[in-house]
């Protein structure tokens, strides 16, 4: 069985671009469908990627999203260039959000983003610092 991962998506995400925000997640969803990934996995991957992509749009100075696939797992990497998450524990608390009223009026900032990602991911690793931005790595199992 091949464990080597193949890159299937790499896309830049612009800060505060609410028109194109979500396109990378949409692209990934379509790619996974074409690869024949089961629909329940496609759906949870779409939710995870979309939450992370919108986090970059809403909270960061811009970043990129990369997806890699092997026979066993799907790896999603979302990297931004700052300003970093001040308190990671709080960021994983349901209902906690630092989003502005303007963002909330658009339907975001419910404080469920990373909570959702953690719920659906099989593994999650978040590193964040002021100097280096936020780096999220999510693993979704494809084989049991």
């Amino acid at each position: 069985m091949s464990l080597q991962k193949q890159q299937i998506l790499n896309k830049e995400i612009e800060s505060f671009d609410f028109q194109s925000g979500g396109e990378a997640s949409s692209d990934l969803k379509n790619i996974l469908r074409k690869l024949g990934v089961p629909s329940a996995i496609v759906r949870k991957t779409a939710i995870i990627t979309y939450e992370l992509e919108m986090n970059v749009v809403i909270h960061s100075l811009g970043g990129e999203i990369t997806a890699l696939i092997s026979e066993d797992e799907l790896e999603i990497r979302v990297d931004d260039s700052g300003p970093g998450i001040e308190d990671l524990d709080k960021a994983f608390t349901a209902g906690f959000s630092t989003a502005s009223d303007e963002i909330r009026e658009m339907g975001f900032g419910a404080g469920m983003g990373l909570v959702n990602v953690k719920r659906y991911a099989d593994q999650i690793d978040v590193k964040s610092s002021k100097d280096d931005g936020t780096h999220v790595k999510v693993i979704i199992n494809l084989a049991n």
Partner: peptide
């Protein structure tokens, strides 16, 4: 059913089918 009208409503709909 929603009171929001921005494009992200459609994106959200797409993600969950």
């Amino acid at each position: 059913l929603t009171g929001l009208t921005n494009p992200q409503v459609v994106r959200t709909a797409e993600m969950v089918g």
